[in-house]
């Protein structure tokens, strides 16, 4: 058939051009970041995740936090993110170099979590929030993640990691609510999310005009 070479070449080339531009180019351009090392303290930014936090990232993925929460702070000219206090500066590509999978997110049914570890540094807050979001965030429509906790009978001393809830969420006398291993990993991950709390050469801190 006479038009076939034209058709097949076109189908290939149009797609290949985009593949080069939107896959190969980012691969080269964004795939090989190195951390910024402080000359004096030898501290690396962005800091590496702890093993527990990396485990927590998979819990974050497994339970689909990404469907309501983003992890990206837009620059001043592109949104009100900084004015909402979600970060000290926009996030840039290098901020994600430590992640196995980055959860940039496309939805803000819940607030941005890029710097939630800095905005809510208390583990207790996170546990209470995950157990019953309305307790610490009244009116929230976030579902409770009670399956990340276990309610168990106190044997001997109460556990050190039992969480304190108020009625009606409080455990019955003689019982306690303790986060499971997954729960602890998730909170470790959330507490380590401090993506734009430190400056990088390519992204100085920005202050929103009041």
């Amino acid at each position: 058939m006479n038009r076939m070479p034209l058709l097949l070449t076109g189908i290939f080339l149009t797609f290949f051009s985009a593949w080069l531009g939107l896959v190969a180019m980012p691969y080269i351009h964004l795939g090989r970041f190195k951390p910024q090392v402080d000359d004096v303290t030898r501290e690396e930014t962005p800091p590496p995740f702890s093993g527990e936090a990396l485990q927590g990232a998979t819990i974050y993925a497994a339970n689909g936090c990404i469907y309501c929460h983003s992890q990206q702070v837009r620059p001043l000219e592109a949104g009100a993110d900084l004015e909402r206090g979600w970060g000290a500066r926009r996030t840039v590509a290098r901020d994600y170099m430590r992640d196995k999978v980055a959860y940039f997110g496309t939805s803000r049914t819940g607030p941005d979590l890029s710097n939630i570890g800095a905005r809510q540094p208390s583990a207790e807050w996170h546990y209470q929030h995950l157990y019953q979001p309305q307790v610490v965030s009244k009116g929230s429509i976030m579902p409770a993640f009670k399956f990340l906790f276990e309610k168990r009978r106190i044997s001997g001393q109460p556990s050190a990691d039992a969480i304190k809830m108020q009625p009606p969420d409080e455990a019955e006398p003689g019982w306690e609510i303790v986060p499971t291993r997954e729960g602890k990993q998730l909170v470790a991950y959330l507490l380590s999310l401090k993506r734009s709390t430190y400056p990088l050469p390519e992204a100085p801190e920005e202050t929103p005009a009041k």
């Binding site: 985009a18 896959v23 691969y27 964004l30 795939g31 970041f33 170099m97 430590r98 999978v101």
Partner: peptide, 14 residues
């Protein structure tokens, strides 16, 4: 063959 996470955003949305 995972690469650094920053590449994943563009590839994901492409």
């Amino acid at each position: 063959l995972p690469v650094q996470a920053a590449v994943q955003g563009p590839v994901n949305w492409w």
